[in-house]
């Protein structure tokens, strides 16, 4: 499968945008100038972005509490995401959702979710719509290793498989559910083996390899689109930072973190682009500079945006 230069560079663009975005948000929380909480995807940019890029226009996604990479991956406007985290009225959810509730229904992004496992059934229902209306579109449902121990995982995968619904259940396995390692929360090493219980195919991939993520997602999407039912993709990856803003990471050692940093998804992908003559250093630098500038502009936009008016408090509870 050949991937066009445009797509590869766009994946790189969105990956570095996610990295810079996350680092900037982390900085704001350390400085104490951002309200609420956040779950950052630093280290998981390939799995989050390249998978979204493998989808077609009109396809849907559901996301998790760690969803910035998915929002950026789906092409949501960075200024609106930043403004949302600042709680501003110009945010994608008008300042009422924050870090865990980013959505853009027009772009097919049905939203990130504050409840672990909350997206499985929503994705299943969105896929049911595609099947009933015969749209040819599919749904990609992000989830983490920890979410696969929720009851909604089993219920939804069972339902999606028996109805042959077009969903890719995309696991970003970052080895920990908050502080608990996978080894202490399940009796198996790979989430993907659970696919067998539902009679559906699965893939286990290097989640830090953007090209592998993209290609596998394309292949799985093709399978789903052909009406054969759902698929599990398990992308092995790692988060460099804590579970959320208040995590000291006492449950894992520095050596482990450093080992994963040697497999950094952005560096791996950058080397791939250069070694395969897809982009040179200058082009790479241009993308990175553009991404940084975009973040700067987004911060400026967010800071200068107004808070929601107080009368917005009771708006939009009901349609």
């Amino acid at each position: 499968m050949d991937i066009s230069k445009d797509i590869l560079l766009e994946i790189y663009d969105r990956m570095v945008t996610t990295r810079f975005f996350s680092e900037r948000i982390n900085e704001f929380f350390i400085k104490g100038i951002m309200h609420g909480t956040t779950h950052l995807s630093v280290g998981e940019e390939a799995s989050g972005v390249a998978s979204c890029m493998a989808l077609d226009k009109g396809d849907y996604t559901t996301s998790t509490h760690r969803g910035h990479s998915h929002a950026i991956g789906r092409g949501m406007e960075v200024i609106k995401i930043m403004a949302e985290l600042f709680g501003k009225v110009t945010g994608c959810s008008k300042g009422k959702g924050g870090s865990m509730h980013l959505a853009d229904f027009d772009k097919g992004h049905l939203g990130s979710n504050g409840v672990v496992g909350g997206g499985f059934a929503i994705a299943t229902g969105a896929a049911l719509t595609q099947k009933m209306k015969d749209t040819g579109k599919i749904v990609l449902c992000f989830f983490g290793d920890g979410a696969s121990n929720e009851g909604s995982f089993h219920e939804s995968l069972n339902m999606a498989s028996v109805w042959k619904l077009p969903v890719i259940f995309f696991c970003e396995n970052n080895l920990y559910g908050v502080s608990t390692p996978v080894s202490k929360s399940m009796n198996i090493k790979d989430v993907a083996v659970r696919a067998k219980s539902y009679g559906i195919p699965s893939y286990i991939i290097d989640g830090n390899d953007a090209v592998e993520v993209y290609k596998t997602t394309r292949e799985a999407a093709k399978y789903c689109r052909s009406g054969q039912g759902p698929v599990i993709i398990e992308a092995k990856t790692y988060r460099y930072l804590g579970h959320s803003k208040s995590d000291e990471c006492e449950y894992r050692c520095a050596e482990e973190v450093n080992r994963w940093k040697k497999k950094d998804p952005i560096i791996i992908f950058k080397n791939y682009l250069i070694e395969n003559n897809i982009a040179n250093q200058i082009e790479i630098k241009r993308i990175e500079d553009k991404a940084l500038k975009e973040i700067d502009l987004a911060v400026e936009f967010a800071k200068n945006s107004p808070n929601p008016p107080l009368n917005a408090l009771t708006e939009d509870v009901y349609a």
Binding site: A121, I122, A126
Partner: peptide, 8 residues
């Protein structure tokens, strides 16, 4: 949950 997903 699927009803919610179908509804949106």
């Amino acid at each position: 949950g699927a009803a919610a997903g179908a509804a949106v």
